[in-house]
Structure formats: C-alpha cells, structure tokens
Design a protein around this nucleic acid. Structure first.
Ligand SMILES: [Zn+2]
Ligand SMILES: [Zn+2]
Ligand SMILES: [Zn+2]
Ligand SMILES: [Zn+2]
Lengths: 163, 163
DNA sequence: GCAGAATTTGAAACATTATAACATTTCCAG
DNA sequence: CTGGAAATGTTATAATGTTTCAAATTCTGC
C-alpha cells in the first residue's frame, strides 16, 4: 500500500476510495467472507470522505440510491465491515469511518478535528505499549482500546473556517 | 485524599461514596457552583457502585426515590457534574461514573472489565505524554482524550463468574 | 442440476439514549 | 421586597440501535 493521504489536506480522494475498495475485496477473499453489494456500497459510502458517517446518514444515502433499506440493513453491513477490520466505530461520535490500516493488526488512534470534522487514524505503537503497560500494572488484561483525541487539525489551527 | 479503593476488590464502599460527596461539596464551594439536592443525589447514585450507570438508570433510581423526574433533569445534572469534573461519561458504554480524581487536572484512562462491569479510572502520565506526542507529530493540537480499555480485571481473569 | 442447509436481506416493530422548547419555580443581589 | 439569573418541571421529539420473524439468496453435497 502506498503512502496514505492526509485527510486535512486536499488530495485525490477517489484514489483513497478505490484503494479502500480493492483492499476490502482482497481481504474478504482471503478471509472467505462475502463482500456483497450492500456491504460494498456501505463501505464506499463510509469512505466518501474522511469524516465519520452516522449509521442513519448511510441509511439516507442508500435511500437516495433508490435502495429501500431499513436500519438493520445498515447496522448489519457495518457490523460485518467492523468484524473484518474494514471500518471503525468512533464511540465519541456514534459514527463510522473507513479503516486506513485494513489487513494490519493494529490499535487505531483517532485524531478528530472539532472544527472541520475530519479524522486521521494513526497507529502509535509507543502509545499502545504504554497503555498495555499501564493496564498490566493494575493486573488488567487489555483486549480492546478506544482511543479518540478531539482537538484541532493543523489546517484548522490557522484557518478556522474551511469546509 | 487517602489511597483509592480498587473497584474489583471488596472494600468499604460507603467510604468511597462519602469521600466523593464531601470532595464534591468542597470543589463546588471553591468554584462557586451550586451542588443542589438533585445534583448531589445524582452524584450519589452514580457512585453507588464502581460500575458506570446509564442516564436512564439514574432516572429510574430517582423515580423510585419518589422523585418524579424526566430525562432532562438527569442529563442536566450529569452535564453539571461533568462540567465540574465530578463524573465522566464512558463513551463506549453510554454511561457515567464518578471521577476518582476530582479536583485534579487529569486525563482519565478507564479499565473496563467486560465480565464484572467494574471500571477503574487511572491517570497514566506516560500514556498522556505519548498521546500528546503522537498527536503533535501530526501537527494536531489535542484538547480532549477518550481512552477506554475493555478487558478482564484481575479478579475476573481467575474467577470468571462473580457479581 | 437439485434438495436441503446456511447465510443474507427485507420488513415491521420496538428499545434506548439524548435534546429542544417553553413554562414555572427558586435563588440571590441590590 | 423585587427584578433578573439560574435551576427545575413538563411535554414532546430526535437520534441511535436492536429484536423478531419472514423471504430471498447462496452455498454444499450429491
Ligand atoms: Zn482521501
Ligand atoms: Zn480540521
Ligand atoms: Zn477523572
Ligand atoms: Zn471483573
């Protein structure tokens, strides 16, 4: 996989999307999982930007596709995509975003710009290590880490009003 | 403030509660904030255990008090308590728990046992530091960190079925 | 190809969590 | 007291997520 785009900066986003979709197809193939049309379409919608999308936003997009979907359709697709490491749920936003490290085992760390809404997913091994250490000092066996940082992205620090 | 109790182990929990309440009174006094009866009662309810409590659970307890409350009452009290650093919202659970470091500026790190439901709040400066560093390497100005670790507490690792 | 099993999707209802809007009460300063 | 600010009450509604059962599709062994 090539260098990742920075969500906060303009970039050829179509490349992000098609990369994500082709990665997803490969991953599902490898895992014998079925990336059905609905699931693929939901993934594509999630990837329409680097801003997390709510389940009901996905639903609305599906509807405007002409697809007459109900909430379970969307939640099932999202569950599938999460299960296979293709999307993440952002707990602090009740929203979903495409995983930029699909296929790699990783603990995502999410930098959420409160001004523009874009989110950058990082893997910070040093952070994960400190987390694991702090937990195990308490005898706690960590299984799943939610790490979401709200703040200002580089662009919004200097230019508070873009998109 | 004396040594903190470990939620996963039996302890004199009444001491936790009365400590929390008296801390809260002191903090509100210092901040010229009004810890009204409703707010204090909600705080007390939140502190009834080391398991996070949902807003509607609080509501139910208030009702069984004979207090005829509606959701906004609870959410307003919870907002107030959060504002003054007396409770935390656990995003991954949509629930609230008492802050064990009220009055200290800190970034909470929450160890959530998926078996018994108890949550331990830590402050791990080394983690916060790594987080801040990782964020600033991306030019991101971190303001607020959500850090919630799900896993197994020491007790539930060996004794999977207690309360 | 074909029957039966398993997976996926459709559809309706419902549950849970959270907020909006406006009226009323309580508190406090002057 | 009294007028304004803060807090609470009340009703309705929005936003998010789940349960349940039926129908359709896909897979698997034959
Ligand atoms: Zn992009
Ligand atoms: Zn931004
Ligand atoms: Zn705290
Ligand atoms: Zn436990």
């Amino acid at each position: 996989m090539s260098a990742r785009a920075i969500p906060y900066r303009p970039h050829n986003h179509d490349a992000c999307v098609s990369q994500a979709l082709s990665d997803a197809r490969a991953i599902c193939q490898r895992q014998n999982a079925r990336l059905t049309p609905i699931r693929e379409r939901v993934l594509e919608l999630i990837w329409q930007s680097h801003k997390p999308l709510g389940a009901y936003d996905v639903l609305a997009e599906l509807s405007s596709d002409g697809h007459n979907a109900a909430p379970p359709t969307v939640y099932r697709a999202l569950d599938f995509l999460q299960q296979h490491g293709l999307v993440h749920r952002i707990a602090s936003l009740n929203a979903f975003m495409g995983c930029t490290h699909a296929g790699e085992t990783h603990t995502g760390m999410f930098l959420i710009c409160r001004a523009c809404g874009n989110v950058l997913e990082l893997t910070a091994p040093s952070v994960s290590e400190e987390v694991r250490k702090a937990a195990s000092e308490e005898g706690f066996q960590a299984e799943n880490t939610t790490l979401e940082i709200a703040g200002l992205c580089p662009r919004c620090q200097v230019e508070p009003d873009h998109d």
